[in-house]
């Protein structure tokens, strides 16, 4: 991917609002043609970073470059090459599907011919053919999200910034939406997407996990797992998860394990060379009078990685 060139680049990007530091020295490279995920909890500085990349906010220090152009005072020439879908889908709810698409097309200066084609493509992408006259507020969240995506790529941008596009959308629509994003990659659109859903991290080619305005882990999902969690994860299915976690945490020094966490109805145990410790862990639990249940070594999920890296 890197060979395609860099679509966006942030160097020591800082944004302060008074005493509050929203972004504290952010660095990242987004390669052309990839889906770059920007993950973090609400209020971790994701939106602020995107706004600086779009030139809507001026960084306190550091720099950001998009499509090889430094984003500073005048981003006017850059704007037609960028697409943006802001947090709240940014559609005009009182206008129809068609009116929304036409407005954004005109806003990007499309000619009548380009506009007609772009609107048709966007309607197909959003699956809203035949519903052009429907007022936007009558659409459900999933449809509005797809319409907003259609509106954001009408002008065929080279890079698309999506700020929490899947927030508040049902799981099925979220999956469909990610399929749409993969479709964009095939059209050579680079995608920069923020989310606070951990499960969406696995869909990204590369990602940065951020907390309190700082990058905590960074890279492709495989790289991140390798770097943060070289060992494997022991997955237990005990009958009493609470007790199991308590017993193992108390014995963590002796067993040389790093973390014991609840993972749904299961328990995940992290640490180096877990396969060597399997017997010791099971014995410890049996000695304490607990049934460890089914035990297996699994690949860490990104969620495991994030929990481990936050600690």
């Amino acid at each position: 991917m890197k060979s395609n060139g860099i679509a966006a680049l942030a160097q020591d990007l800082v944004k302060r609002f008074g005493d509050f530091t929203a972004v504290a020295g952010m660095n990242f490279e987004v390669y052309r043609g990839e889906i770059f995920g920007f993950l973090g909890p609400n209020g971790s500085g994701k939106t602020t970073t995107i706004r600086m990349a779009l030139g809507l906010l001026t960084p306190t220090s550091g720099s950001v470059e998009v499509l090889g152009v430094p984003v500073d005072g005048n981003t006017h020439a850059l704007r037609p090459r960028i697409g943006y879908m802001s947090q709240r889908f940014s559609l005009y709810n009182d206008l129809s599907v068609l009116q929304n698409l036409q407005f954004y097309g005109r806003a990007y200066g499309l000619s009548n011919h380009e506009l007609k084609e772009g609107v048709e493509d966007a309607l197909v992408l959003a699956g809203l053919e035949g519903r052009e006259k429907v007022k936007t507020h009558e659409l459900s969240g999933g449809w509005r999200q797809r319409l907003a995506l259609g509106a954001a790529i009408l002008h065929e941008p080279e890079i698309l910034f999506l700020d929490e596009p899947t927030a508040g959308v049902d799981p099925l629509s979220r999956r469909d939406f990610w399929d749409l994003l993969y479709g964009l990659i095939e059209k050579n659109i680079t995608v920069f997407v923020t989310t606070h859903y951990m499960d969406e991290a696995e869909h990204c080619h590369r990602l940065a996990f951020i907390q309190s305005g700082s990058r905590i882990v960074y890279g492709s999902p495989a790289e991140i797992k390798e770097e943060v969690m070289p060992g494997q994860v022991l997955e237990l299915a005990p009958s009493d998860t609470g007790k199991t976690i308590q017993v193992l945490r108390e014995a963590s020094d002796r067993l040389k394990i790093d973390e014991v966490e609840l993972y749904g109805s299961l328990v995940h145990v992290f640490g180096p060379q877990m396969e060597d410790k399997l017997d010791a862990i099971i014995n410890t639990l049996r000695d304490a009078g607990h049934d460890p249940g089914q035990a297996s070594l699994v690949e860490p999920s990104l969620e495991d990685v994030f929990i481990a890296s936050i600690k």
Partner: peptide
């Protein structure tokens, strides 16, 4: 209020 202003500011509209 509805967040559309931010979207507008990202377009080439001056």
């Amino acid at each position: 209020e509805h967040g559309t202003l931010e979207q507008l500011m990202a377009t080439p509209i001056g």
